[in-house]
Design a protein around this nucleic acid. Structure first.
Length: 435
RNA sequence: GGAGAGGUGGCAGAGUGGCCGAAUGCGCAUCAUUGCUAAUGAUGUGACUCUUAACAGGGUCCGAGGGUUCGAAUCCCUCCCUCUCCGCCA
């Protein structure tokens, strides 16, 4: 996969100087990483580079002598240049193939997880940090969002599938309005906190997918339009928003940048056949409000931002009176790019459990390196930025939580106070449909 | 989709085969002057990478990739992007 920019990725110097750190990081994430091969390729490439540089210098100097040379000198120069050129070509070809392999391997090196990341093999070993909110107590048999949605004629899964295949849906009437209300509320909360709202493309170049760390590796999860146009549908606004300033050198005064964006999100959900097949939990398309922070390379500040964006989303859930818990994602459940991730799981009565609704990630400079996203620090030195993001609200999973947690015996849905202004002041949605 | 013009440093902009990593201006930094600010003057100021303990030195980069040439920012080809006009269109 070609990337049209210098490629440093996980700092090669770091891999050289502390290979064990990189190995340990990969092990904690339960990921493979051929550090030895990388070091070997790096060394050969550099050895060749020294040779090539010397030959190029010779080539340049004798080339410059041509201008003032007489006939016999010219002939001698031509002869030596021809020989130089041949040697250079051989060495360059060799170095290119080494670097191609090196780049491909570097793209796969996992970012090193933070110390606070718990050990563990998969999501069953994520560590709960806190539970907030009272679980709803029903004095009747609570219904699933599917029963409520279909009963109120708010949700048409059959026709959604007919239009676009399984895992698609149609929202009707008040549920469609409720979707708009939650999205707008989430957006307004973030704008109120000083985040800059952004409307961004959801079709991006594959280079941008590589830059944000989704490719290589996540190709199966993305809808791709690259046969004719080299474009992919994003699974989250994180991609275009984080990449907004790719290839730029930002001024210190511009940082930190805080962005919030509402976008459609598209996910193929390959490999999830038979999992969460009913309802709105796992779908191919939904709306999401996402928050992104871009700041200078400072681990302490990054950690602060991480807690900040986590707090922001918790505030949204609390305002909507939805019970949730926060988990510290363990090494084995962490993706390649993150150094730490907090998931927020919201209570969903039909699942009789918490379902993942938010994911707050801290990347250190992983994405910034791939995106060539840099800034000039106080000393005038160019550095890679740090990036972070978190969900503010994802439409379908929030609708599940809202419908199921706030349902009444009659099958209506109480509207949490903060959403009422977006729904004409109504406190209750739907008609009584159950006795 | 058709025709044309372009893509050069943080920004603007010159540069049509070697003396160009690149004039000049702006911006920025330091110093001088100054009650402060402004103005003025001087000096400095690209990124990446390799060798080196360091001093220092080398190489790469003028949208991307390939080609011609002893030698390419400059010539040729392909692709990407931007702008103008026309067409189509929510």
């Amino acid at each position: 996969m070609a990337l049209g920019r210098p490629l440093t990725l996980l700092d090669l110097k770091l891999i050289r100087s502390q290979p064990d750190l990189v190995r340990a990081g990969a092990a904690k994430k339960r990921m493979a990483c051929d550090v030895d091969r990388i070091l070997e390729l790096d060394e050969s490439s550099r050895r060749l580079g020294v040779e090539i540089d010397a030959l190029r210098q010779e080539q340049r100097n004798s080339g410059k002598r041509m201008a003032g040379a007489d006939a016999t000198e010219r002939e001698a120069i031509l002869a030596s240049q021809a020989e130089l050129k041949g040697r250079l070509k051989d060495l360059e070809t060799e170095q290119n193939s080494i670097q191609d392999e090196l780049k491909a391997l570097l793209l796969l090196v996992p970012n090193i997880p933070a110390e606070e990341v718990p050990e563990g093999k998969d999501d069953s070993e994520n560590v709960e940090i806190r539970r907030i909110g009272e679980l709803p107590q029903f004095d009747f048999e609570p219904r699933s969002h599917i029963d409520l949605g279909e009963g109120q004629d708010w949700l048409d899964i059959l026709r959604g599938a007919r239009l676009a295949g399984s895992r698609n849906y149609v929202l009707k009437g008040d549920l469609s309005l409720l979707e708009g209300a939650v999205m707008r509320f989430a957006l307004d909360v973030m704008v109120g906190k000083g985040f800059t709202p952004l409307s961004v493309p959801t079709l991006v170049r594959t280079e941008t997918m590589v830059g944000t760390g989704y490719f290589p590796g996540g190709e199966e999860q993305a809808y791709r339009c690259d046969e004719r146009d080299d474009l992919c549908l994003v699974g989250t606004a994180e991609v275009p928003v984080t990449a907004l300033h790719q290839d730029e050198i930002l001024e210190l005064g511009q940082l930190p940048m805080r962005f919030v964006a509402l976008s459609s999100c598209y996910r193929r959900e390959a490999g999830t056949y038979g999992k969460d097949t009913r309802g709105l939990y796992r779908v191919h398309q939904f709306l999401k409000v996402e928050q992104v922070i871009i700041d200078q390379a400072d681990a302490a500040r990054s950690l602060e931002h991480h807690l900040e964006i986590l707090q922001n989303s918790e505030e949204v859930l609390q305002a909507l009176s939805l019970p949730y818990r926060v988990v510290n994602v363990c090494g084995g459940d962490l993706g390649q790019p993150q150094i730490q991730k907090f998931d927020i799981e919201t209570w969903m009565p039909s699942r009789e459990g918490y379902g993942e609704t938010h994911s707050a990630s801290r990347f250190h400079d992983f994405q910034a390196r791939r995106l060539n996203l840099r800034y000039r620090d106080a000393d005038g030195k160019v550095q890679y930025c740090h990036t972070l993001n978190n969900t503010v609200a994802a439409s379908t999973r929030m609708l599940i939580a809202l419908l199921e947690n706030h349902q009444t015996r009659e099958g209506q849905v109480r509207v949490p106070a903060p959403l009422r202004p977006y729904l004409g002041g109504r406190e209750l949605l739907g008609k009584p449909i159950y006795a």
